[in-house]
């Protein structure tokens, strides 16, 4: 499976009336293939997360198209796009994204219950939690977990539906070295198992896990 961005560009309107908009992502092409782990690095505000959100089907580009194989994401209606994201794209957003009223195991199971699947894959969720080292915290509530543990939980949740594409936005931000390496190792493992993994990060250590590294600067993407 291949995720492709063709001539995508993103402008945001400015709050001030002096100029109409600013360009977060300049017109660019990008491709992410199964089994590859690609890193995009760059300073804050360079447009990395904006690009990732466009690739995830979460943010409509101002121009250009995003394809998952032959499917034009933004040509789909909202319901179909959401369903496709649920089934094919695992998104690990920035920060903490847990539902505080649910246990860790239930948080991981969430993507599987959104479309009323009869039997949520509890065994797979438990296996993933074991992979990310959270088997002892399955019944804990998110507010009992550290920042690193919450990130690992988010990775397990993003991988539950066996997505073809895994998009991780700053998954190691604020983590100590040990947790950073653990998270990067998990993403590498996902790529090795066949997923296309896009990692947006500031971490220098990430490069050694990635197959390709891109740099984003002022909305322009270039190879390192």
């Amino acid at each position: 499976m291949k995720l492709t961005a063709q001539s995508v560009k993103k402008d945001f309107p400015r709050a001030s009336k002096s100029s109409n908009y600013f360009t977060a992502v300049q017109t660019l092409d990008f491709a992410l293939e199964s089994g590859k782990m690609v890193e995009i690095t760059g300073r804050s505000g360079s447009g990395k997360s904006t690009l990732l959100n466009m690739l995830a089907g979460m943010l409509t580009p101002t121009s250009g198209k995003v394809f998952l194989d032959d499917t034009d994401l933004y040509a789909l209606d909202e319901k179909s796009l959401a369903r496709l994201r649920n089934e094919k794209i695992g998104l690990i957003p920035q920060g903490h994204t847990a539902l505080l009223s649910l246990t860790v195991l239930e948080n991981v199971l969430l993507p599987a219950i959104l479309y009323n699947r009869q039997n949520p894959p509890v065994d797979r969720a438990k296996a993933l939690l074991m992979d990310v080292g959270l088997e002892a915290l399955m019944t804990a509530k998110p507010n009992e977990l550290s920042g690193g543990e919450l990130r690992r939980m988010a990775i397990a949740r993003a991988m539950l539906m066996r997505p073809s594409i895994l998009l991780a936005d700053e998954p190691t931000a604020g983590l100590d070295n040990e947790n950073t390496l653990a998270v990067l190792g998990l993403l590498r493992k996902a790529a090795d198992e066949g997923a296309g993994v896009l990692l947006v990060t500031h971490e220098n250590e990430a490069a050694q896990f990635a197959d390709e590294v891109y740099v984003m600067d002022s909305g322009k993407l270039s190879t390192q």
Partner: peptide, 16 residues
Amino acid sequence: KREFASLRAMGASRGI
């Protein structure tokens, strides 16, 4: 709102 945004990221439609 982060919870709802996270559900969107997981593939929840507006209807859900």
